[in-house]
Design a protein around this nucleic acid. Structure first.
Lengths: 339, 339
DNA sequence: TTGTATGCGTTATCAA
DNA sequence: TTGATAACGCATACAA
């Protein structure tokens, strides 16, 4: 049973395909009588326009592509949630692809999306991504891109992120005001901007409050397995016996790994060592002790990125000039038992 | 800068579009010389076939649609991960939509996917879905559907699930063998098959082990907010003072809600009351106490469903008859501190 | 108000 | 081995 087409409707009503098309588009150059007849028949036959044909004709797919490092990650699934909701509201579909934090994969996924002729692309860069030729090539083809969360300042397009440096600064400042003096930092990979920014925020907070920065208190967690990275580096920290009284971790997962290690080793949190996370995953509100963290607006980040992207797509279609936006979403601290 | 088309290549090489097309498809009725010339030029010009045109012509979109209740849910994000991985391996794109556990939404999303002319659909039914006319209508149009996780036995299509009844049976049997005698069940909504099955498994385990089923020990968690449902019903259970010594919860989130309530009220787990979860979310391995649970293979469920769906799509294209499959994936128990 | 002709970019048929 | 022609389903410019 083949799908009903405009031709079927036109044939049955003895009109042209053109007229049928116009009628369904609700255009004014069709008589009321025929319009109604067409609409009625279309409903009766359960006509569904073939969007592939429409896409080919209008050179639009009403589809946006999304590339994230990994979907099994509470923050990114919230982002996707926001993306899907906003896209659907505006009549767009969402195709999701993962880069697995791998630069080559990221490039490949972009190629796939180009082949699919998506109208625009949302991307959160992989940790391995340094140069952005692959993105610039696409932008040159007039396909809008919005980068979110893990951005790269060198790419000339709209971006939606948080102020990682300030969020880190605020977290560490909070710890200092609470009386902690020897604060370690469990940092992420060296490349991503947000990893760098959170580190810088940490460092700046120390300095601004008259605490000397000590690079031996910075632990590198870059095995792409946050929980275990946190756990293992916490063991290392205990061995180092460096009198640390608080830790600012770059992600909640790392922080939870630290909690596990400390709980196993009888280290009291926060009495012996306080722990601060980043992202406020649900998990962090139910671990013991509950984890202080930075509230990162994942859903809104996805929603806003999509809104901007679709706006740019539309501007492009109507030849309306537009400026790239650089949105910085607000964050806040949620203080719990761990600090 | 418009994308390169076959026409551009044909023009430059002074051949016909047809020949160019054949050459790129690697067909034998093209001379080696022209084939090589075409391929070389295509690479030089960075030719990317317009998949929209290909889709229209071949009546295939190489895209599958996925409908899940919600994506911000560890189990479902694992499923999506499996779906995307398998789909990509086979050259398919994935469009994800959410039903938000709402039947009307579910119907609407299916319509959208039909309009998008996806080649097949993967769906996990919403809790509200009882009748399946909307699915049968699509199946009649020869669009394959594979239902996973929250299935409905009445729909005539392939299904991938776990044996919820047996998994529940095994969990409760484990509790009984451990010596627990008065076991409560925190059940889910009344409609979904897996909610029913887990309840039945619980009941059967009791009876098979000579424990009388007591309906006053069954707490209904159907507010679509698992964590709080667990928390609130745990409070109710404490008030009821019914000497319960163990709880089998239908999801980990509910179980974690119970843990929170018990921890706050000085109820010792598992000494006073043991708690068993279902799904084995990551969270469950880091809460205090760590939670015993049923390991539910989300990634494999997504992967396998996709494999079957694409198989059916291909069989349909080649007019190869095929039988619907009913896959039941194995589960296991992970025993932790809470039991 | 209606319809004809054309094209979107590709693939398939069939004749040359 | 090649290419002219048609078709996929729809939308638009323009003529009637």
């Amino acid at each position: 049973m083949k799908p009903i087409t405009l031709k079927d409707i036109a044939l049955e009503l003895n009109i042209s395909v053109t007229t049928a098309s116009k009628a369904l588009q609700g255009r004014s150059d069709v008589s009321n009588a025929t319009r109604e007849a067409v609409i009625k028949l279309a409903e009766k036959l359960n006509y569904v326009p073939n969007s592939v044909a429409v896409n080919l004709r209008t050179r639009q797919t009403k589809t946006i592509g999304v590339i994230i490092p990994t979907i099994v990650h509470q923050f990114f699934s919230k982002v996707i949630d926001g993306i899907i909701e906003e896209a659907e509201k505006q009549g767009y579909f969402v195709i999701t692809l993962q880069s697995n934090e791998n630069f080559e994969f990221e490039k490949k996924q972009l190629q796939l999306l180009m082949q699919k002729r998506v109208d625009g692309i949302l991307i959160s860069l992989s940790n391995q991504t340094q140069q952005c030729k692959h993105l610039n090539e696409i932008l040159q083809k007039n396909i809008p891109i919005v980068i979110f969360d893990k951005i790269n300042k060198l790419v000339n397009c709209s971006k939606v992120s948080i102020d990682d440096q300030m969020a880190a600064y605020n977290s560490v400042s909070y710890l200092i005001k609470k009386g902690y003096k020897r604060i370690a930092h469990f940092r992420g990979s060296l490349m991503p901007q947000n990893s760098i920014d959170r580190f810088l925020g940490y460092k700046k907070a120390l300095i601004d409050h008259g605490i000397e920065f000590d690079s031996s208190l910075v632990y590198l967690c870059d095995n792409n397995d946050d929980f275990n990275d946190g756990y293992i580096n916490a063991q290392k920290l205990l061995k180092d016996q460096n009198n640390v009284d608080a830790i600012f971790a770059i992600t909640d997962l790392i922080a939870v790994g630290i909690l596990k290690c400390f709980n196993e080793n009888g280290v009291k949190i926060p009495e012996d060592i306080a722990v601060f996370g980043f992202s406020d995953w649900f998990m962090s509100s139910v671990v013991t002790p509950t984890l202080s963290s930075v509230v990162q607006p994942g859903f809104e980040m996805g929603r806003k990125s999509t809104e901007i992207l679709i706006e740019e797509i539309k501007n492009l279609n109507t030849n309306t000039p537009y400026a790239f936006q650089n949105i910085v979403l607000p964050t806040s601290l949620v203080i719990r038992e761990s600090t």
